[in-house]
Amino acid sequence: MLTSRFCTHLRRSILVMAAGLLTLPAVAQQDQYDALSRLDKLKAAYVFNFTKFIDWPEFDRRSSRKIVVICLNKHNPLLLFLREMVQGQTIGKQQWAVEVLPYDVGTRCDLAYFGEQARPDPELLKEILVVSSDIRFHQNIATFSFYEEGKRLRFEVDLQQLQQLELEASSELLKLARIKR
């Protein structure tokens, strides 16, 4: 009798545990982005977060908006990482989608992220919010620029650039940023 009672408890418990453990492989996705540095991944996460704190105009120059487009150079290894990051995500009260596309002359970009190697033509970026991967580069075109401080990633914002783009950033974002003087 004792043995059968123990076995009943054990059977029930094993079933519950098995159900729990079976869910693990489904969520334990293989990381395909091992080659990317942690710093780059952090920058991608910041870029996605920036889109949430910008008051994007409801109508852009071409159509009524339902999507915010982030562009990266097609050779930038972060492109696929960022694309997967924004998949299924929405931003703002209007629940706009976010799309990641290769930066190209014909692409309608709202935000463009450039790595240190990129040398984009400033003339083509007059209506695009530019994020620079390093504060030492893209100084005349970048609205947001990353820098490191004590092994933490920080960002600087150029309010003048923001104003020229006629965009507004939320105070929540600005209070976390260093303001460019």
Partner: peptide
């Protein structure tokens, strides 16, 4: 990417590079 997508700006600021 999914893990990073869940993070807020405040949380990102705490992470080591």
């Amino acid at each position: 990417p999914a893990e990073f997508a869940e993070m807020s700006l405040q949380e990102l600021l705490t992470l080591s590079t």
